[in-house]
């Protein structure tokens, strides 16, 4: 009796697997364009052999892929026609269908080396980050970003300002309002505007709006004044040196 119940249950499952595969074994929802074939696994799958690229190509002609972009969110992008050069490649190396936990992982097999000529235009596929810094760039993404991954970029921040231990902060701390073209040093508790102004004026420095131009290393004692500042602030420097000398002298007097 028990055995027959078990056997019947298994047979019912096997029947349902073949009769209603989308309910019984479908690992996830199909993409919009494939929904009509949800019960016909063999439309894409060859039993025990996986997914045949020929089956994909029978509907999706390589030379036409990308010509009709149905995704309205990609309206700003140019069509990226490069599939015609990919004969002999497995479609499943880059594409999958059933939406699982990580559909984005399905593109792990994609290599930018596949892109040739005009197709190798980043903006043909990628959307430009919506921040004020990236807004001004229209090309040369590779100047900062590699094709391996978007982050981290090869952009060398230390050329402008060294992010040492004391300055290991979130970008937004200095680059406020999503604007990476400007910065502020007053984003943390350490540097208040009045304190910095006081310290600089004491040294006779009145042009201190661009902190990183002199304090590139992040060390307040490592000061490298650029040439244009030296010329422009020569008079300031002189008065500053006089003040320094005066300060030093008064200190010496105090010591005596």
């Amino acid at each position: 009796m028990k055995k027959s119940v078990v056997l019947l249950s298994v047979m019912a499952c096997i029947f349902a697997m073949f009769r209603y595969p989308s309910v019984m074994i479908n690992p996830g929802q199909l993409l919009e364009g494939h929904k009509k074939i949800k019960n016909d696994c063999s439309a894409c799958h060859v039993m025990f052999r996986g997914i045949s690229s020929e089956k994909c190509i029978s509907c999706h002609k390589l030379s036409e892929i990308g010509m009709k972009d149905r995704d309205s969110t990609r309206a700003d992008r140019k069509s990226t026609l490069f599939h015609q050069n990919l004969s002999g490649q497995e479609c499943t190396a880059c594409h999958t269908d059933h939406l699982g936990a990580n559909p984005e992982k399905s593109f792990s097999g994609f290599s930018h080396d596949m892109l040739q000529g005009a197709a190798a235009n980043c903006l043909g596929c990628h959307k430009k980050p919506a921040d004020l810094y990236h807004e001004k760039f229209t090309e040369n993404c590779s100047h900062c970003h590699s094709t391996d991954k978007w982050k981290p970029s090869t952009f060398d921040h230390s050329k402008y300002f060294l992010l040492d231990k004391k300055h290991n902060a979130e970008c937004i701390t200095c680059h406020t309002n999503n604007n990476y073209g400007s910065y502020t040093c007053y984003g943390c508790h350490e540097h208040s505007e009045s304190k910095i102004a006081g310290e600089h004026r004491e040294e006779g420095i009145y042009n201190f709006s661009n902190c990183a131009s002199c304090h590139k290393s992040g060390n307040e004692h490592d000061i490298k004044i650029p040439l244009e500042y030296r010329q422009g602030n020569e008079s300031q420097d002189k008065s500053g040196s006089k003040k320094k000398e005066k300060k030093k002298k008064s200190k010496e007097d105090d010591d005596d």
């Binding site: 499952c13 019984m24 074994i25 690992p27 929802q29 699982g100 936990a101």
Partner: peptide, 11 residues
Amino acid sequence: GIHFNALLPWL
């Protein structure tokens, strides 16, 4: 829990 959507694995 990580990836199953169909009835058979649920069973």
